[in-house]
Every structure is written in C-alpha cells, then in structure tokens.
C-alpha cells in the first residue's frame, strides 16, 4: 500500500444485514488508531450524491459507481473510506475493486429470514405487503461475493466479534498496525493478568 493513501472497506449485504452498524463501529475503531475516516452509507448517499436515482439495475449500478468514485478521491487523499451500501451486483463491485485497488470487501452475511425479523427500517414489511417493488432479498436479486476478504456472519456473531474480524484482516493485510488490545477482551485480559500475577510474572 502507498502509505500516503487510504484504503477502502467495502461492505455488501442484504438490507438489515448489519452494514451500517459495523461501518460505524469500525469507524470509531479506526479513528481511535489515528486514521481519518469517512463513511459512505447507502442511505445518506441516496439522499445527496445519488438523489433521484431509483432501484432499477441501471440506477443501482450508477449509485455504486458514484460511491466508488467518491471513495477513490478520498482514498487518494489519505482517507480511509468505509462504504455501507447493499451493492447487490457482483460485476459492479468488481469494477470498484479494480479501480480502488486497496479494497477490502466485507460480506455482512445474514439469512434473509433473520433480516426480515430485524427489519430495522420496516422496509421488508412494506416489500412483503407489495407496497414497494424491487426490494433486494424479496423481489430483487442479491449476489453474494465469491471471495470477500472478510465474512461477518452477523446472525451468529456479536457486533464486537464482527468488528474484531475486520480489524484482524486489516492487520494481516498490512493496512493497520496491531495494538495490544487486538488479542484480548477486557475480561480475558483480567484472566491472563491474574494467572501471570499468581506466577509472580508481573
């Protein structure tokens, strides 16, 4: 990686799979480590940069294209960019990967039944009632990534565990440096501390 450039963490997943939640937590974590971070959340982008775009395949692809171009500009200026849009189509994600290069794809994986149960914004309900059309996961396709850098199984993991997985991958890929907190939770650290104290090691 060019040290003066940032990198991009690209979330993809069904509605309510956990993209925005993880993006925010990851942002906090990276800021704590001294990075400048920008989150491009699908909802916010659609209100501004992509205002007027709909949910046809063409419009969805255009939306993603705008997101990756903004990401490109930010990244080039040393900002770490986290995107949190459904980005349902494989091909356009591949386009983003090729342009951005420092690209870490994170699949927020969660069975659609569970997403429906969560229905954070009440959209699944509307889609199932036929009130809205072309809703990803209901009557619009979602193409899961074939080789994402990270898979967060958000139905099985806690938010903390998912974030830790991403952080560990970023360390492994050399984008961030490990810190002492990367191995233990507080509770685990207490256990280890006690063990070492009992042995007179610390």
């Amino acid at each position: 990686m060019n040290r003066n450039e940032g990198f991009v963490v690209w979330f993809t997943g069904l509605p309510s799979s956990g993209k925005s939640t993880l993006a925010q937590r990851l942002k906090d974590e990276l800021i704590k480590r001294g990075f400048r971070v920008e989150v491009l959340d699908g909802d916010v982008v659609r209100e501004h940069i992509s205002r007027g775009l709909g949910f046809s395949k063409e419009d969805r692809d255009e939306n993603i294209r705008r997101i990756y171009h903004v990401a490109y500009l930010l990244k080039r200026n040393g900002v770490v960019v986290i995107t949190a849009a459904i980005s349902p189509y494989r091909e356009i994600r591949q386009e983003a990967r090729e342009l951005l290069k420092d690209f870490v794809e994170v699949y927020a994986s969660c069975p659609v039944e569970k997403c429906i149960e969560r229905d954070v914004k009440g959209m699944y309900k509307k889609a199932l009632a036929g009130e809205i059309k072309n809703f990803t996961g209901i009557d619009d396709p979602y193409e899961p990534p074939e080789n994402p850098e990270v898979i967060c199984e958000t139905d099985k993991e806690t938010v903390e565990e998912s974030v830790k997985k991403i952080i560990n991958k970023l360390i492994e890929m050399g984008y961030i440096e490990p810190t002492d907190e990367d191995v233990y939770t507080e509770e685990e650290e207490e256990i280890i501390k006690k063990r070492l104290e009992d042995l007179g090691y610390i």
Binding site: I171, P178, D180, D182, V183, Y184, E189, I192, K193, L196, Y201, I202
Partner: peptide, 19 residues
Amino acid sequence: GFIDRRPSPFKLYLPTGKN
C-alpha cells in the same frame, strides 16, 4: 517480558504473539 510498556502515552500491556 510478560508485561511491557508503551512509552507514550504511557501504558502497561501484556504482549502476545501479535507483538
């Protein structure tokens, strides 16, 4: 060691294989 310190900001920590 089993315990080490980051000099600034000062912090004691338990090194692991990551270190």
